[in-house]
Amino acid sequence: MTSMTSRDSAQKPRLLESRRVLTLILLAAFAWSLLNLDWTEGFIHSGGISAMGEFASALFSLDLSADTLSAAVSASWTTVAYAVAGLTLALFIGIPLGAIGSGVLTKSPWVRATGAGGSRFSLAFFRSIHELVWAWLFVAAIGLSPMAAVLALAIPYGGILGRIYAELLQDVPEAPLQSLRSTGASEWRVFWYGRLPMALPDMLSYTFYRLECGIRSAAIMSFVGLGGLGHEVRIALDDLAYQQVWTYLLFLIGLVVIVDIWSTMVRRRLSE
């Protein structure tokens, strides 16, 4: 124990200092980017301000006609269906790869290194490509089918979930695990009886957050022509029908708020 603390304290100042250097570099990059902006022309083109005004005032004259509302409801349903299906599939990627990637299932260093390395690499690959790019690829490969949207969402989201799950599983308190091990339990049993139950509330709350993001992504995804709220928003924007745009956007906000309320309820029940 003592030797470890002394080593830690020797390393800490250096880590802190290098962090400060990194902060300085980032601040300098930001300042440099400000200097390179062209301030004389202004951010917004001449007609921009009046378009913004029109768009803002449309919020107070929402299009609540039966046609628009029914289009909004059915588009919301499509969007939610894409998000839920995509996220469900993402769980099948994220849970196993996250568990293997956390490297906690085995003590054997060889198995651990290959398993964790392999799954972390695939997770990184999945999530480094944006869902819009995946959508474009899948639309090219299998056409404009809901399957394309679901797969396009599931793959990067699986990569993100897996990475976060791996970290949450690693970061649980060690002492209860140690006392499970002292009952003779193998790492697999320690995983099921200690790690997973302790990491589960955080895993769930992160998954709910991802569902919110998934709804947003699913809406955007329909810009490539896959139907849903984004699709309706784009058509309305093309028609300059700002009243309709707002109706669809409010439905999108409503969906996100509902997911938020739902996740709060689930988390409260878990921590009772």
Partner: peptide, 8 residues
């Protein structure tokens, strides 16, 4: 510190 698994 007892070391129970709090969520079980």
């Amino acid at each position: 510190q007892f070391d129970l698994v709090p969520n079980l």
